[in-house]
């Protein structure tokens, strides 16, 4: 098991490298003069000279990449010209809120998705199944940016139960309770689609597992239904659901962009939107790189959990 974790960590290195290549190549997609594009309105001759020196933009592409990667490895993501501060500092400030939001909704969608999926499968064709299937359908079809607006309208503006945005109250805020109060609506908004997807796939996997021969064997042994479903079916279904949760982490991290924008959450998503409209390419690069890396880490965790649950994967991969 430990050696598997080590190998899996090692395998993440080429992935991270690939990510950095793609993130770097974004600059080369820019039509026209990259220095001008990166600087946009801040394109003073002084800045242009500086960026050409920093990134080696007059060099061939592989050399540019080397320069850039060396910088990244030393924690230098360049300088945000729109904010006039190093990208690393800005990203570091923004990363925490995004992580809190993403993990909270990942927890919500895993919990509710799996519970709903199992409930629907166990009561297939019953009214529980029908209602859940309908809810799931609406859930996966909901644009989270629209849902967020509507939730603000009802729960914040209308009922006044939750704040309309932000992470902490402006005056006298702070503390975990205040955070949770602010977190509730955005986390739910962000979790809705993923909950639907997880519920749907959990149901499908449960149904598939319940048809397997070993479930019949469990019944032929005289086990009660609770044991058949809990001990035999659920674990086997979960093995296939875990990677789905990993994939959903990607959607949650991406969807955070909308939710942060709607709820004024001070995370990387909102930073990215601003940076794009400012054409602050280096800030975009830094943000994307960090979020992608955290996605890779989440997938690492789900992979390890899956292998821990499934002995077949341990031996097959050797």
């Amino acid at each position: 098991m430990l050696s598997y974790v080590a190998k899996r960590l090692l395998l993440a290195v080429p992935v991270l490298f690939g990510i950095s290549v793609i993130v770097f190549l974004i600059i080369s997609l820019i039509p026209g003069d990259p220095a001008m594009a990166i600087l946009g309105a801040y394109a003073t001759p002084e800045n242009v000279a500086r960026i050409n020196r920093d990134l080696g933009l007059d060099q061939p592409l592989p050399v540019q990449f080397g320069t850039w990667l060396a910088g990244v490895l030393q924690g230098d993501l360049g300088r945000s010209y729109s904010l006039n501060r190093p990208v690393v500092d800005e990203v570091a400030d923004r990363f925490g809120p995004t992580l809190i939001l993403a993990l909270a909704s990942l927890a919500l969608c895993s919990l509710f998705g799996v519970v709903a999926g199992v409930a629907a499968a166990v009561r297939q064709y019953g009214w529980t199944d029908r209602v859940l299937t309908l809810l799931v359908l609406i859930g996966i079809s909901t644009p989270s940016f629209f849902l967020g607006i509507m939730l603000i309208l009802w729960f914040s503006v209308g009922l006044g139960w939750f704040p309309t945005g932000g992470m902490y109250a402006l005056f006298g805020g702070g503390g975990v309770l205040d955070l949770l109060h602010h977190l509730a609506l955005p986390a739910v908004t962000l979790a809705v689609v993923a909950t639907g997807v997880i519920a749907r796939l959990t149901r499908l996997n449960m149904l598939e597992v319940l048809r397997q021969d070993y479930v019949r064997t469990a019944r032929a042994k005289g086990l009660r239904e609770s044991a058949v479903i809990g001990r035999h079916a659920f674990r086997n279904a979960l093995v296939n659901v875990i990677p789905v949760i990993g994939i959903q982490a990607g959607f949650v991290l991406g969807g955070a962009v909308y939710v942060e924008t709607v709820f004024q959450w001070p995370g990387i998503g909102r930073m990215l939107v601003t940076a794009i409209s400012m054409r602050d390419i280096l800030l975009v690069q830094g943000g994307v790189l960090v979020v992608a890396a955290s996605f890779v880490s989440i997938n690492l965790v789900t992979d390890v959990v899956q292998v821990a649950l499934d002995p077949r994967l341990r031996t097959v991969r050797r």
């Binding site: 991406g254 962009v257 990215l272 390419i281």
Partner: peptide
Amino acid sequence: AFPYLLLALAIVAA
């Protein structure tokens, strides 16, 4: 390996 929407954002950004 990229969160779904993020890559799209990066492309649009460029």
